[in-house]
Design a binder for these strands. Structure first.
Lengths: 116, 116
DNA sequence: TTGAACTGCAACCAATAGTAGCACGTTTAT
DNA sequence: ATAAACGTGCTACTATTGGTTGCAGTTCAA
């Protein structure tokens, strides 16, 4: 279930700081590291490092324009990532509900025995 | 959007090792740290530390029985966590699709102009 | 009662998120 | 044309944290 490639996606998105950066990119299109740094409680260098990680995970791409570098979200890859997240969530839900039903039927059975 | 309490959930689930531990707990009910350590590529102490984090995030609870300590998933809290994950994924999807539609209509417009 | 199993605690190591400072390239203004 | 200003990247440094080993304390069983 937890493959290595998916782990890269998870740890990219799992980090709170990177999630903030990603969220800013999703909502603002194509922007620079400095612009992002102005909207986030840590330095430009930290933003830049996170962008490297996100780029290695394929979640963002860069484009140099003059003296600045613009970053944007790779929609397809992010879609794949959110799908994986939703899948795991659904899988856990499924298991937990199965266990819950087991517990309820066990309770009903014991109740029946007590009543006998 | 990204509150502090939710960040605790995310970084709890975002870590690959913790996700493996959680997955084992979801699939096996109530088990001990040593049992978990036997099914995971790191030591019992590492498992134990992860369980502390998961417990502080409210995702698991502990129960002492004789000389061993049994852990189990707190279904309600995990449900809340997976819901938050799905919500963020949906939100990103929504934004990306909106942007995609914008781009397509802009393309159609430029095409129309070129054809004129 | 002696030994084995399970846990918790402390010390230590390695990786990484964060910082600050400097050097380099590009734009802009005088 | 040249200097100032802006944006970026690189390096060194610190702090946090995931991981390890070793040891001591409990509980169960022979």
């Amino acid at each position: 279930m937890t493959t290595e490639a998916e782990d890269e996606l998870w740890s990219a998105i799992g980090d709170p700081s990177r999630r903030r950066v990603l969220d800013l990119l999703v909502n603002n299109g194509e922007v620079s590291a400095s612009w992002l740094a102005g909207r986030v409680p840590f330095s430009r260098q930290a933003v830049s490092k996170h962008l490297v990680v996100l780029e290695e995970a394929g979640l963002v791409s860069r484009r140099k324009q003059g003296r600045e570098v613009l970053y944007k979200v790779e929609a397809g890859r992010l879609d794949q990532a959110t799908r994986a997240m939703a899948d795991l969530a659904a899988e856990w839900d499924r298991r937990l509900n199965a266990i819950k039903r087991l517990a309820e039927s066990a309770y009903a059975e014991s109740k029946e025995k007590r009543g006998r």
